[in-house]
């Protein structure tokens, strides 16, 4: 008699921990980890043991690696902390998380993180604990509150730490050539080749039209095309993935001296050109968050990303 599926799945914990699982067994075991605390714990302990083992074979890398890494991170955006839009937080933590992330596709962009929508109840708790343990990193309650506000988007600090967006001015006349070249560089080649409607052409033809390149929180390259003179902006993206079940990508405009104002939403799709509905001429910044579909948040429920200062 064949053993129950659950039993035979437990056997895979060792192979999983050493990355010797492939194909359907790998995906079945990863799904199993969602539900099996015992296996998660076992994998965790195996990995600690392997890390200890690795201590025996340490070899310092050449100095060039250090400089390359530090140079690279200076221009690399960081994923925002996981925040649930609403509802209960899930305590379950997928031990395989580091594997589920794009390190398995090193040369391609950030793939979707299907499990990252499961908010971890301990995320903020851990950071608080770590801060305490490191002996006074949180100097006062004010700093802690600012950090919390920053994470929930209620504070304004996140605008100041917006990832640097590549700004490319699009001059009048010849915009098509410039835009094509620029969008190609931003891996938007498919979009550049598409037909544009009148409204899109008008925006791109505007004398002050400016293209800002940035990324969604899953690494997808997107661009804003903005003309303050026309009071128009649109999001351009070659290939957008779903932000998760029952979730949408939510655009925001940020007036110079106020709180973010909810704008339009978009979902998965290719060759996207999404016009924003709010006031662009007075906007100080544009941003995106992930929100629950059908909800009408008055403020971002997570730290915004794809933030560009206009």
């Amino acid at each position: 008699m064949t053993p129950p599926i659950e039993e035979s799945l437990h056997e895979l914990s060792g192979s999983y921990a050493v990355h010797a699982l492939t194909g359907t067994e790998l995906s079945e075991f990863e799904a199993h980890l969602h539900d099996c605390a015992q296996c998660r714990e076992e994998v965790r302990s195996f990995r600690e043991a392997l890390t200890e083992l690795d201590g025996v074979i340490e070899v310092a890398p050449p100095p060039a690696v250090r400089s390359n890494v530090l140079a690279a991170i200076a221009g690399t955006a960081q994923l925002p902390p996981i925040e649930a839009a609403d509802g209960p937080r899930h305590a379950a933590q997928l031990d395989g998380q580091p594997d589920g992330q794009p390190d398995s596709q090193p040369d391609s962009r950030q793939s979707g993180e299907p499990d990252s929508r499961t908010a971890s109840a301990s995320e903020d708790g851990v950071r608080g604990t770590v801060a305490e343990r490191s002996g006074g990193t949180v100097a006062d309650l004010g700093a802690a509150r600012e950090r919390r506000e920053r994470r929930t988007g209620r504070g304004r600090a996140w605008i100041a730490v917006a990832a640097a967006a590549a700004v490319i001015a699009v001059g009048a006349g010849g915009w098509a050539v410039n835009l094509n070249r620029q969008l190609e560089q931003q891996q938007q080649a498919q979009v550049a080749g598409q037909q544009l409607n009148q409204r899109e052409s008008a925006l791109l033809n505007a004398p002050d039209a400016t293209v800002y390149a940035t990324t969604l929180n899953d690494g997808t390259p997107v661009s804003y095309v903005v003309s303050k003179r026309l009071n128009q902006a649109m999001l351009v993206a070659a290939d957008v993935r779903s932000p998760g079940a029952d979730r949408v990508w939510q655009l925001w405009t940020v007036p110079g001296s106020g709180q973010p104002v909810r704008d339009t939403t978009f979902v998965a799709g290719t060759n996207q050109r999404v016009f924003m509905t709010g006031d662009i001429d007075r906007a100080g910044a544009l941003a995106i968050t992930v929100e629950r579909a059908g909800s009408t948040p008055t403020a971002p429920t997570m730290t915004p990303f794809a933030v560009v200062k206009l």
């Binding site: 890494v69 991170i73 960081q78 996981i82 992330q101």
Partner: peptide, 16 residues
């Protein structure tokens, strides 16, 4: 290490 930088917010102590 670039991944560690990008995903730094995703580490939590419960994972090890």
């Amino acid at each position: 290490f670039v991944d560690v930088w990008r995903q730094a917010t995703r580490y939590s102590a419960g994972r090890g």
